[in-house]
């Protein structure tokens, strides 16, 4: 133990050398003015002022921020996750917004779901083309009930122009 004490005493003397290390002459003359100048410019010790204030008032945020500073790859991974979430949300919202109204029943199935392969896309296009060329074939089944409800003793489209009557209030 006395040997340790003696050895530590030698080390303590050597460590005194550190106290004699000095920055360049007049170094501290400008130090505070440089700090104040940077404060006036709105610089922060790290990150952004508002973020810095929030961090100091929320210790758990400090730990997260410290982890990001210590391991930048964590910050990168976090940013990537946020971007991926945003992109996924945008894509999903666009998909739900699109409510395609299928005028051609045969095309409904082809446009309602995702088409992953070119073959599927080509088949859907072919179906659509067929329906467009021969709409009656597609409409026959769905319209038959509707057509049966229409009166059958007259033309399908009875176009009679009724004269328009305009009544102007206050004038007879």
């Amino acid at each position: 133990m006395s040997q340790d004490t003696e050895n530590f005493e030698q080390l303590r003397r050597l460590l005194k050398l550190k106290r004699y290390e000095q920055p360049p002459p007049r170094y501290f003359n400008d130090f505070s003015s440089q700090v104040i100048a940077r404060v006036k410019r709105g610089e922060r010790g790290d990150g952004y002022a508002s973020v810095g204030r929030v961090l100091w008032e929320a210790p758990w945020l400090q730990r997260i921020w410290a982890a990001f500073e210590a391991k930048p790859i964590l910050a990168g991974a976090f940013g990537l996750a946020v971007c991926a979430t945003l992109i996924t949300g945008v894509i999903y919202s666009e998909r739900t917004d699109l409510q395609p109204v299928a005028l051609i029943p045969g095309a409904e199935a082809s446009i309602s779901g995702p088409m992953d392969s070119p073959m599927e896309i080509a088949n859907a296009m072919a179906e659509n083309r067929t329906a467009l060329i021969n709409p009656a074939a597609g409409l026959e089944g769905s319209l038959s009930n509707s057509l049966s409800a229409l009166p059958t003793d007259g033309p399908l489209f009875d176009l009679r122009a009724d004269p328009a009557s305009l009544t102007i209030p206050g004038r007879n």
Binding site: F31, Q34, V35, R38, V39, E43, R44, G45, D46, A49, G52, R53, W56, E57
Partner: peptide
């Protein structure tokens, strides 16, 4: 680092 420490201290002075 010393300058940044003082700057950060100023920003966090409210705490």
């Amino acid at each position: 680092l010393a300058q940044e420490a003082f700057i950060k201290a100023f920003q966090a002075l409210r705490s």
